[in-house]
């Protein structure tokens, strides 16, 4: 059984049909969130080509995320970053058996519709691309395809869940090869979860109402989350993960799995590193196994990495206030 907190029972994305006198329902929260549950303890890798997708699959990735450019190249290129070419996405879907995700711009309902029609398995409404609507995210309940969203705090995460996100990931600071912001975000989420859990446990209804006001989400969702003591959907780490040890550290902080963006295919040892990050994610509790994974990579071949305090563009701030 999985939590269905905040579920919108009459969402437009839920489709019912009758197949040979049996009722068949698609797009329910059980199906959307359940899909994310199948990815747990796994690694989702950013890819831009069929070759990279095949390397990711062979290395043991649970899914690939298709982009036009890897986040660090988005940073370098500047300009407007949009969703990837549909032909490349479909070509990748024809060449790997694992699920294929793709990113759309924050608030860009039609990029999301195009991706859903192209039959991607999950859409990432992502701050890595240039936001199309600074004030609103997509109302994801209208879609049969599930969505994942980034969040820097529990408040942001719950707002995205209230809009229909079936999965959350930390925002971190994409394309930097610097894990510091992802660590900051998951620790903030954990602190906030502890806070609302203790308010719930002390039966302080007024306290929960204050938190709902502060978070700008419904009291019901805050209350159900407080009762669970964890995020009501699967929560992955993302943004700046570059090494097996990075992945294991974030797993140890309570993340359900890992997204790796530029960390793998901007490194010079992509194949080995992809495999090593998967091993470290699966066996994170065993420090010796993580050491063995870390030994598979060469630090001289890691992505160079950026100081997150001197960035011209902080992607994590995109869509954060809405």
């Amino acid at each position: 059984m999985i939590p269905l907190s905040g579920d919108l029972a009459k969402a437009k994305g839920i489709k019912s049909e009758n197949v040979e006198s049996v009722d068949v329902t698609k797009g329910t929260s059980t199906l959307k969130r359940g899909f994310a549950h199948m990815l747990k303890n796994g690694v989702v890798m950013d890819v831009t080509t069929v070759e990279q997708a095949q390397i990711a699959e062979e290395a043991g990735a649970v899914s690939v995320m298709v982009l036009d450019k890897l986040p660090s190249d988005v940073r370098k290129a500047g300009g407007v970053a949009r969703t990837a070419s549909i032909r490349i996405i479909q070509d990748i879907m024809d060449h790997v058996t694992i699920p294929v995700m793709a990113k759309c711009r924050i608030g860009h309902v039609y990029e999301a519709k195009v991706l859903a029609e192209a039959n991607v398995d999950m859409v990432d409404e992502s701050e890595v691309l240039t936001p199309a609507d600074e004030n609103h995210h997509i109302w994801k309940w209208d879609f049969t395809t599930p969505f994942v969203n980034g969040a820097r705090s529990l408040a942001e995460a719950l707002r995205r869940i209230e809009e229909g996100a079936a999965m959350i990931r930390t925002k971190g600071e994409p394309g930097t090869g610097n894990v510091a912001e992802a660590v900051l975000h998951i620790k903030k989420v954990n602190d906030e979860l502890r806070t609302i859990k203790s308010i719930y446990d002390s039966d302080d209804k007024q306290g929960l109402v204050s938190m709902a006001r502060e978070f700008k989400v419904s009291l019901d969702l805050v209350e159900e989350t407080a009762k669970l003591g964890r995020m009501p959907v699967v929560n992955f780490a993302a943004g700046g993960i570059a090494t097996p040890a990075d992945a294991a550290y974030l797993m140890s902080l309570g993340c359900d799995g890992i997204f790796v963006g530029s960390g793998i295919f901007k490194a010079e040892d992509a194949m080995e590193r992809a495999r090593a990050v998967v091993l470290a994610t699966t066996f994170w509790e065993d420090a010796d196994a993580v050491k063995e994974a870390q030994k598979m990579i060469n630090e001289k071949q890691s992505i160079l990495g950026l100081d997150v305090n001197n960035l011209e563009l902080r992607m994590q701030e995109r869509g954060g206030s809405s």
């Binding site: 068949v24 698609k26 599930p146």
Partner: peptide, 8 residues
């Protein structure tokens, strides 16, 4: 694919 995942 996922869009055709279903309950029955």
């Amino acid at each position: 694919r996922q869009k055709d995942s279903f309950e029955a």
